[in-house]
Each structure stands twice: as structure tokens, then as C-alpha cells.
Write a protein that binds this DNA or RNA. Structure first.
Length: 718
DNA sequence: AGCACGCCGACT
DNA sequence: GTCGGCGTGCTC
């Protein structure tokens, strides 16, 4: 007898079940299984021979006739779990959360069964098919284990009521009801009582009367969500002479035109870092399907059945059943490709590891694309758009904005144009600092300076890591000095300063979670918008003339070796923010000769990414090697340190020179009350990494977390 | 992951 | 004496 291996969307390896009664294995199908006294939806990822170490339970039923995930998809799922050092279920939870559906689950007793645990009324009821919700889960499970239960499952479709007219108006009803009924006859149907009442301009009581007296019938119909209509925009396809290895440079529309040309040769799977980019691209490519987390899960399951169309998707589309002509990774330098949930991977690296040989589509080349696309065909390279701007050296002692910057802002406003000031931080300031004794308020749970929000209730300190809040002290709590001051200008501080400098001008603010946009700014009137990088997703400025970055280093934290190329890519995306506008840039930096700044201002797209790649080669950083970060954490500092030490010993016994780095306290040594220590395992050969990390002893009592594509770790390397 | 179990310290 | 925090083990 065959058993099936079922991956549930939980951080677990697949579990074994017997196939549903009377069925065989169906690889790739969704299956409903009993799991801890309840039922869950999983994915069949393999089969095996029984007997097994312990008694297996039967799966309850399949949700799909054919495979939900094709055999290639299943194979890639397994490969992904291996690449990510994650349990297979974790990968299912992260990439395929929409396999879980509301269920229509009915049960009845096997004819003739008379289990003693059941009281007479229930026994009687269960002779016929009964909704499973009518029984307590424990009881259901006991009956299931007793072998006296038959079960049927199917995906439940949400239903909505539909109102249909039955009889024409007659003398039996009043004038208002007659009018409402006439409206319904005219419409043919209505969505609900309230809907009909609204359309007929009556109260809903009138409608209820119509139903009660049998003039109107209510029935339930399946409510199927539909894709909203795109508002198509004209875009002439640009057929590339041959499928290129990367499409870079130029304007957003030029890159999309090349994509459209490719789409005419065959369906593409395009993986974007964020939903907002999908929403921006779709109108130009309405022949493709969008597929991302914002769409209802039911709609995603329906779209999943589509074949032969191009897909504009997020990471959730990674396993979309093909075949596709090409797979495309958009904006590989974006940190939004870093998956936030359990698996924590960098999507472009995963796509490469799965052997999908993607085509890269980027405003500015990323080191990653330069490395991986090498030798796969000629790049399609658009001329970079012309860049205007200057770098301004930032003096430590000076104010928030250089005089130069203020003068340029003034000029732009005088010409009736709009200004974007890009803030590196949200809130008022990155920290408070006592000029007298050097004290800085830190989060009590995390080893991090608290962010300062000035506007909130007379000043508030907030931890961006754990959410801790406390009032801001008016004087230094350590030395009582009044010299406690803000450092590291954030969005609110910049806005405050600009409002003082330009009192007549509307100043708006935009960040994740804050949208304060004066109406004139929306209308295109002269004004200033202070924004975080959020503006790349949603830009309200139509009349943009100047982009100022008053603190470039705020975008370049040293612990993150991806930061410079991300910053470089961001500059090019800012350059392309408003179609048809060529804004002037002022870049204020302590190091205005930073190669990313110089390359950008010279209009050189390739030089900086190439130098980044050379630097990574010299340091043997990714993509020239693979690194896995091991994070050991515990509430007690010494316990965490000792556990990290033991883990190091265990690894050192296997590792060779240069393969193991650490242990070192994490760049943020304490988060949410837990002390964190990092180790890095590094190798040019992914198989070697797998060997090193196989069957690691758990560092009890500390917790271990693996990050398959670490970003911040420099502290370990010096 | 989520849940039960068992251990130890803190209090009505 | 019991409540509840946390560490540990298990899920077919």
C-alpha cells in the first residue's frame, strides 16, 4: 500500500498519511487531512511505501481532480526547501498560502454503525450527511479514529443572496412595494435586500414585505471574485531580436515595451518585488495576469488554473504552473525581494538556484544580474536617461540643509515647480543625544536607540524594532542637563525646518503610515513634499523639478553590503519618477565622491555596479559565494553567548579555513529582550554548505534561526 | 507554527 | 497551596 507525503503550510517537514479511502496518491494535489483533532489543507509532495514506523491516518479527501502544482513545481518546491534550509511546510506557507480554502465538510456514520459514545439524537442526525461544524472537533476525531465516519470535503465557494421577481405587482401590495417590485422586474435581479431598497428608493422593510408575501424570491448564488478591469494604456511592443539576458537602463516604459515584445513570443513569468510595481505595469500589459497577495485567495486559486498567459507576480507566483517562455526578475537590487516571512531568502538568488535562468529587468544593473546573466545572451541596454544635478559636501557642524539646497528649493518654487525632499528616516529624529554627558535613550528590550517623534503628545520615543513607546524626557535623565537634543534628521524634522524656511509654501509629508498632502500639492501647485522611499510606490507630485537628498549616508548603513547598489538603483528610479520630467538632483553627503553618487551624476549606469561586483569578488561575498547566517538567541546574555560558542565548536569540527565566521554579537545585539549572536557559514559550493549544516545539534536552551541570504553582517567579517 | 506537558518561582 | 512563565517535545 502506498502512503502519501503531505506538506501542510506550517514550519514542519511533510507528514505521511494513507490516501483518502478508495483513492490512490495524487502528486501535487491539495488534500484535506486530519491534524491534531482538526482538519487542514496540505499539498501532496510525494509517496512512499508503507509499512511506516507508526500507524498512519487516512487523508480525508482531495480538493483537486488534477494536480494543483505540476510535477516540475513539486520538484522545485523540494529544491527550494533545500536551498533555504527550511522545512518544506515553511516554504508552502510562504509561497503558497492560498492553497488553504474554506471547506464544505460533511460527515455521516458508516451505515449500520452504532458507536456508544453518541447520544440518540446525534446518532439519528448522523445517519444522513451533516455539516462537520455541527460536531465538536474532539468527538469528530474520535469517530474518525473509530472508523465509523464517512467524510466528504470540497472547497466551499462563498455565496451571496440574489433577489428575483416572482409575480408582477397586483392589488395585494401597496404603492411603494409595487414600485420596488417594478424596479426589480426591470433590473432582472438585485444583490441584496438593501441593494434593491437603495435602487428603488424605498426602505428595506418594503423589500422584506415583498419577500414574505412571495412576490420576490431569494436564492443563494456563488460569489466569484473577478479581476478588476485594467485601464489599458497604449504601448507599442518592441520585439527584441533574440531573447536577451537582461533588459536594463532607459525609462520604465521602454523596459515594459521590450517586455511586451517578448510576451508576443511566448508567455512570461515576471517576478516583481512589490505589488505596487505590478499595479504600475499591468495597464501597459493588460494581456497578462496580475498575481500577488493583495488579490483575494479565492481569486488567486482561480487564476492559478490559467495556462498560456503571461503572469505579473510577486514571490507568490514563483511556482505558478507553466510552461513559460521566459522567467523575468524585475529590479533584482530591491530589498523588497528579501522575503519577510519564515524563509527570509533573497528571491533572485532562489530563482537562480532553482535553475530558472531568469532574464533581468532593471532600471540600473544590479551586481547580481551582471554576475548571473553573464554568458546567457546579449543584454538589451537602453541609453540611460539624462541626469542633471550636483553633489554637495555636508559639514558636520552645519544645519539640516545646506545653503545650496535651500537656494535651489527657492528657485524651483519661484518657477512654480514642485520639490521632493527625500528623508532617510521616518519620525522626527533617529535618536536623542545629551550634549553634556553623551547619554542616548535606548529601547529597554532592544539594544537600539529609540526614534524620536516630536509631534506625538509632547514628544515620544518609539522603538522601530519592537514597538516600545515612552514619553521623551524634557531634560537628560542622567545628568539633568537641558542640552538633550535630536540627532539624525527624520521626515518630520525636515518638514518642520522647511516650513520655517518657506512659510508661504505648502509642505506635505509622505511615508509608510503617514499621508499629509495639502491639496495644492496634489493639484500640481508649487510646494515641497518630504517623503521616505515610499514615494517610489506612490508619487503625488506631477510638477516635479527638484529632488533633494539632504543626508545620503542615511541610506548607506555600513552593516549592509547591498545598501550601496540599492541606493544607486533608487536614484535611477527617482530619476524616472514622473514620466516626461527630468528633475534636478541635489545630493548632500559627507562623502560626495561616493562612487554611486558620481556614477549617477555622470549618467553612467554600468560603472558602479561593475565596481561593486569586483569588490564582492575580492571579498568573496555573494554572488561569488553563498553565505548562511546562524542566529542564536536567548533571554540571558551568557546563555546566548555560550550556546553560540557550542554551535561554533560543532561547526568548527567540520569546517575548513575560511568557511566559518564568528561567533559575534549581532549588529543589533538585543532584540525584543533576546540577546542575539551570529555565525556565518560561507562557501562557494552550495552543496558544501548543505553538508556543513546537516544535522546540526540544536543549541539548547537557546533558539537557532537560519538566514539563507543574510544582508547585514559586516561586524563578523572584520 | 501551535499546542500540551512539566518544571520552577511568585503570590492570594 | 495554586497561578503562570518558559523550555521541551510532538504533530502522520
Amino acid at each position: 500500500m502506498k502512503a502519501i507525503r503531505v506538506a501542510l503550510p506550517l514550519a514542519l517537514e511533510p507528514l505521511s498519511y494513507l490516501p483518502p479511502l478508495g483513492e490512490g496518491p495524487r502528486l501535487g494535489a491539495r488534500v484535506v487531512v486530519p491534524f491534531r483533532k482538526e482538519v487542514r489543507v496540505g499539498l501532496v509532495v510525494g509517496e512512499e511505501e508503507t509499512p511506516h514506523g507508526h500507524a498512519l491516518r487516512h487523508a480525508i479527501g482531495y480538493l483537486d481532480e488534477g494536480p494543483f502544482l505540476d510535477p516540475l513545481g513539486v520538484e522545485r518546491l523540494l529544491a527550494a526547501a533545500r536551498f533555504l534550509f527550511a522545512p518544506l511546510g515553511q516554504v508552502v506557507a510562504d509561497f503558497l498560502p492560498f492553497i488553504e480554502a474554506p471547506l464544505c465538510h460533511r460527515v455521516r456514520l458508516v451505515p449500520g454503525a452504532r458507536p456508544e459514545a453518541l447520544e440518540a439524537p446525534l446518532l439519528e442526525k448522523l445517519r444522513d450527511w451533516t455539516p462537520a461544524e455541527a460536531l465538536a472537533p474532539e468527538l469528530l476525531d474520535a469517530l474518525r479514529e473509530g472508523g465509523v465516519l464517512e467524510e466528504r470535503v470540497a472547497e466551499a465557494l462563498p455565496r451571496r443572496p440574489r433577489l428575483l421577481p416572482v409575480r408582477p405587482p397586483d392589488a395585494g401590495i401597496g404603492p411603494k412595494a409595487a414600485e420596488a417590485l417594478r424596479v426589480l422586474w426591470q433590473l432582472g435581479e438585485a444583490e441584496s435586500q438593501a441593494d434593491l431598497a437603495r435602487r428603488a428608493g424605498t426602505g428595506s422593510g418594503v423589500v422584506r414585505t415583498l419577500i414574505e408575501r412571495g412576490y420576490v424570491r431569494v436564492e443563494e448564488v456563488p460569489a466569484v471574485p473577478e479581476l478588476p478591469e485594467p485601464h489599458p494604456r497604449r504601448l507599442a511592443p518592441l520585439p527584441p531580436p533574440e531573447p536577451p539576458s537582461r533588459i536594463q537602463g532607459g525609462r520604465f516604459r521602454e523596459r515594459l515595451a521590450a517586455l511586451k515584445g517578448l510576451m508576443q513570443q511566448g508567455p512570461l513569468l515576471v517576478l516583481f518585488p512589490e505589488g505596487s510595481m505590478i499595479e504600475r505595469a499591468w495597464p501597459y500589459l493588460p494581456e497578462a495576469l496580475p498575481f500577488y497577495g493583495k488579490l483575494p485567495a479565492l481569486l488567486r486559486r482561480r487564476l492559478w488554473q490559467t495556462r498560456g498567459k503571461s503572469v505579473l507576480g510577486s514571490a507568490q507566483a514563483l511556482f505558478f504552473p507553466g510552461p513559460f517562455f521566459r522567467v523575468v526578475v524585475a529590479e533584482a537590487a530591491s530589498d523588497a525581494h528579501k522575503l519577510a516571512s519564515g524563509t527570509r531568502a533573497f528571491l533572485p538568488a532562489l530563482v537562480e538556484a532553482l535553475g530558472m535562468e531568469p532574464l533581468y529587468l532593471e532600471a540600473a544593473p544590479s551586481a547580481h544580474a551582471l554576475y548571473f546573466a553573464e554568458g546567457r545572451g546579449r543584454p538589451l541596454f537602453f541609453a540611460p536617461p539624462r541626469v542633471r544635478g550636483q553633489a554637495v559636501p555636508k559639514a558636520k557642524s552645519r544645519g539640516l540643509l545646506a545653503g545650496r539646497t535651500r537656494a535651489l528649493v527657492q528657485q524651483a518654487l519661484e518657477r512654480g515647480r514642485q520639490v521632493l525632499v527625500l528623508a532617510a528616516r521616518k519620525g522626527y529624529a533617529s535618536r536623542l543625544h545629551c550634549a553634556s554627558c553623551g547619554y542616548q535613550p535606548e529601547c529597554p528590550n532592544c539594544a537600539l536607540p529609540l526614534r524620536y517623534y516630536k509631534e506625538k503628545r509632547g514628544g515620544e520615543l518609539v522603538c522601530h524594532q519592537c514597538g516600545h513607546r515612552q514619553p521623551a524626557p524634557p531634560v537628560c535623565p542622567r545628568c539633568q542637563s537641558e542640552l538633550i537634543e535630536a540627532k539624525g534628521p527624520g521626515l518630520d524634522w525636515l518638514a518642520e525646518s522647511l516650513r520655517r524656511s518657506f512659510p508661504e509654501t505648502p509642505v506635505g509629508r509622505l511615508s509608510g503610515g503617514l499621508e499629509d498632502l495639502p491639496e495644492p500639492l496634489r493639484q500640481g501647485a508649487p510646494g515641497i513634499l518630504v517623503a521616505t522611499t515610499r514615494v517610489l510606490r506612490k508619487n503625488p507630485l506631477k510638477n516635479l523639478a527638484l529632488i533633494a537628498l539632504p543626508w545620503v549616508e542615511g541610506f548607506l548603513p555600513e552593516s549592509d553590503f547591498h545598501a550601496p547598489e540599492r541606493f544607486f538603483a533608487m536614484l535611477w528610479q527617482l530619476r524616472d519618477l514622473v514620466p516626461g520630467k527630468n528633475p534636478y538632483f541635489v545630493l548632500e553627503a559627507y562623502h560626495p565622491d561616493h562612487p554611486a553618487i558620481e556614477g549617477f551624476l555622470k549618467g553612467d549606469l554600468l560603472g558602479f555596479p561593475e565596481s561593486e561586483l569586483a569588490m564582492r569578488k575580492a571579498l568573496s561575498y555573494p554572488p561569488f559565494s553563498r553565505m548562511v547566517k546562524l542566529e542564536v538567541s536567548h533571554r540571558e546574555e551568557s546563555t546566548a553567548r555560550e550556546a553560540a560558542g557550542r554551535l561554533f565548536e560543532a561547526l568548527a569540527a567540520r569546517a575548513q579555513e575560511g568557511e566559518l565566521l564568528g561567533p559575534a554579537p549581532a549588529p543589533i545585539p538585543r532584540i525584543k529582550g533576546r540577546y542575539l549572536w551570529h555565525l556565518i557559514v560561507k562557501s562557494e559550493d552550495p552543496e558544501r554548505l548543505f553538508e556543513l549544516l546537516k544535522d546540526l545539534p540544536p543549541p539548547r536552551p537557546a533558539r537557532l534561526k537560519l538566514d539563507p541570504d543574510p544582508v547585514g553582517f559586516t561586524g563578523l567579517l572584520d
